[in-house]
């Protein structure tokens, strides 16, 4: 099987984030592999391992696909050190400020041209928090959509079944190859890259493509930020130590604020 995993480099969740000219300042902030995408990499590796492995020349390959600035190689390298075979990084100055629609168009083109059987995504990038790219890729490619999976079962003959978990309940869904999967964080426990994995990743290929190589023209974003204003920080709250009447103090606070 040819498996693709979509990973994104995002600002560290703990880092303070700022907007510059209506866009997230991605330069002056620590960047990491989107932690929800680690579950996607792990699931891809587990699927490969359950069906003959992904050693060189073996039955399966796991390719990491990412769109982002050149420094996104760090995040891609992490996915490689977990055990993915190779990677494609789409980098082009024209992509700065791309929205989810443009991102999904680029990813879909690369995926469609790569001849993959399945593509696995995280459910959400922790910076944009949109949860839309996997569904967009599915719509663009005309591939089956198997998203929010808490369990994935692959029949290498060409069928995938998942358990979908959302606020709307639990569904059992299946689709034939090729299809787009996204996985929730309950699905597995991502492995830590081993020393051997980290060393091996240094030798793995990260193929960089610009838009011309991808064969797609850049699309400007279809929504714009008019303005961004920091909200006043929460006023420092009141803190009391329970010395036998903490519960009553809580009730008094509720009454004072007219919350009861």
């Amino acid at each position: 099987m040819k498996i693709a995993v979509c990973v994104k480099q995002v600002p560290d969740s703990w880092a303070e984030k700022k907007m510059v000219n209506g866009l997230l300042d991605r330069v002056n902030v620590d960047a990491v592999l989107n932690d929800l995408d680690e579950y996607a990499v792990e699931e891809a590796l587990r699927i490969a391992e359950a069906h003959g492995g992904n050693e060189e020349g073996g039955a399966n390959t796991v390719t990491v696909i990412s769109m982002g600035p050149e420094r996104a190689t760090e995040a891609v390298r992490k996915a490689l050190s977990m055990g993915a075979n190779d990677a494609i990084l789409i980098t082009d100055t024209a992509l700065a400020g791309a929205d989810a629609l443009a991102t999904s168009a680029v990813l879909a083109k690369v995926i469609g041209d790569g001849g993959y059987d399945i593509v696995i995504c995280g459910t959400e990038s922790t910076d944009a928090r949109m949860s839309v790219v996997p569904a967009m890729i599915s719509a663009r490619l005309g591939w089956g959509q198997l998203t929010f999976a808490s369990k994935v079962t692959v029949d290498p003959a060409g069928k995938v079944s998942i358990t979908r978990v959302t606020e709307a309940g639990v569904d059992e869904i299946s689709a034939a190859f090729p299809c787009v999967i996204s996985v929730v964080e309950k699905i597995n426990e991502p492995r830590y890259p081993s020393f051997k994995g980290i060393m091996a990743a240094k030798k793995k290929t990260i193929e960089q493509r610009d838009l011309a190589t991808v064969g797609i023209s850049s699309q400007s974003a279809w929504s714009q930020v008019n303005d961004a204003t920091p909200r006043p920080p929460r006023a420092a709250g009141v803190k009391v130590t329970d010395e036998g009447n903490g519960g009553q103090a809580l009730v008094n606070f509720l009454a004072e604020k007219k919350l009861i």
Binding site: K17, M19, A221, W222, S223, Q224, V225, N226, D227, A228, T229, P230, R231, P233
Partner: peptide, 9 residues
Amino acid sequence: STTVHSKVS
């Protein structure tokens, strides 16, 4: 921490 106004174009 930040309020944003955006519009589809």
